[in-house]
Nucleic acid binder design. Structure first.
Lengths: 259, 259
DNA sequence: CGCGGTGTTGACAACAGTCAATTACTGTGG
DNA sequence: CCACAGTAATTGACTGTTGTCAACACCGCG
């Protein structure tokens, strides 16, 4: 596993850190997370965790490794809809069972724990676990925000902007579970996978990385990303701080619309 | 208003048809919808209905007209994240109040009714309105599916494929509320708006429409779309029937973007 | 040492954005 | 009835971006 792997203690740490990023947990709630962390399940890399329509969606939370939610097109192309990081729910939707053409696959060796008690506490607004219940709702909401980000990246950003924006998103999300060290973090993705996330060809992913490297904006070595000039990257990516509002005063009016 | 406008009776019809597409309604539930339809609110075209962070998100359902959920970029570009049609919730997320950089704007003259009782019934799993409660959850789920579709369109489809896919999605959604007549439906969108949905420039939208027209696949006149060859469009768009599974046997794996 | 997966590069062609101009289409007022 | 203005649609010329193809380099592994 990646450097985040240090057994069940590490799994517990991921859970606590992720939830604490949104709410403060009671002793009781912390205890529940500890219990969940005691029964991790292993998933081999590159294998599907779930294919929509084949079974009820799994209520599991990732505690180590990366996964992705993707769709295959009739022409054989793949589009990755979202990346799943430690602390994320494997299947982010509330337990409505509906067919859909999405699947979830492990991108690395993966470990998950049951999130059933968490999801149930959330839909029932369980008063015994108010923090967990709320946090799960916030996470579902956040997942939708990430989809919006993904749509904006694919629809309206330049190659470098797309890449930069994704790296900033990953740093943001990984920092919530304590997997960012300064301006560096581990990113176990091949350029092939990045292409399917960003809607590029592999070659163009490579070109884009070279460009960003040449400009001294970031460095990628040995599966570790270093954001050398985070501020310039934010500028390039049109990054908006996760808390909402625009990053700064918006330039008057471009070739664009409204005003 | 568009041809869908025939007053409160029409609003009631839209609500009933949309819900009936997912569940069967009890008398009590039908009555609730009728009450809601009695108090429509009017929104002028091109005006924002909601800007994230400014207030709690509105629990309203569209009964006539079209709207869109969009984001503005620092460079002035706009990306429309999703289109909102009659029967859709203006703000599709469960009532977790979180800042986000999305806004919702009317694209035409618009009428909405309160959806607060519906959303509340859904989160509380109100036993008095089981159908409504479930249908709202399904709609939220469907909204996520639409986001996945949008991501796949933007990430992996050709210009014509994107356009065709969007038209098929619109037909699908409009048919649930009885706004499709054979292979035609009203689409009150300028090419400018379509560009912001599809991630194109206006000029390229036009080129794409011309192409599809030349190929005899569809026709657009007076704000009315006619899908002349629905089957060919589905082929072109890599369309998967809304119920899930792939449209047909997947060719092994084509390296090419298309033939 | 060969092998498969991954990263890298260059050449070329197809695709898509920008600019700029022209053509409908509408509703207005004369 | 027509002139007019304003919006939307359309077209052509040109440029920049991105995909495809085809090598080659690098690396861990058997």
């Amino acid at each position: 596993m990646s450097d985040s792997y240090d057994g069940q203690a590490g799994h517990f740490r991921v859970l606590v850190e992720h939830f604490s990023a949104f709410v403060s947990l009671s002793i009781l709630e912390t205890k529940l997370l500890a219990e969940l962390a005691e029964a991790p399940r292993y998933h081999p890399p590159y294998r599907d965790l779930y294919v929509a329509g084949t079974a009820p969606p799994p209520s599991r939370m990732i505690v180590a490794g990366w996964a992705c939610q993707y769709r295959l097109l009739p022409d054989g192309h793949r589009q990755i809809v979202s990346l799943k990081l430690p602390g994320d729910l494997v299947w982010p939707l509330l337990p409505v069972r509906l067919p859909s053409s999405c699947a979830v696959a492990a991108l690395t060796e993966l470990e998950t724990v049951s999130a059933l008690p968490l999801v149930e506490a959330s839909v029932a607004a369980d008063p015994a676990h108010p923090g967990l219940a709320h946090a799960v709702r916030v996470m579902a909401h956040l997942h939708d925000m990430l989809l919006y980000d993904q749509i904006v990246r694919l629809g309206r950003q330049t190659a470098c902007g797309r890449f930069a924006h994704l790296m900033l998103e990953l740093r943001e999300r990984l920092s919530r579970v304590g997997l960012v060290d300064g301006d560096s973090f581990a990113m176990p993705l091949t350029q092939d996978v990045l292409a399917d996330v960003l809607g590029f060809s592999v070659v163009h992913v490579n070109r884009t990385v070279q460009q960003l490297r040449r400009d001294g904006l970031l460095e990628i070595r040995n599966g570790t990303v270093t954001l050398s000039k985070p501020d310039d990257l934010q500028e390039l990516a049109g990054w908006m701080p996760p808390s909402g509002g625009p990053a700064g005063p918006r330039p008057p009016k471009r070739p664009g619309r409204k005003d």
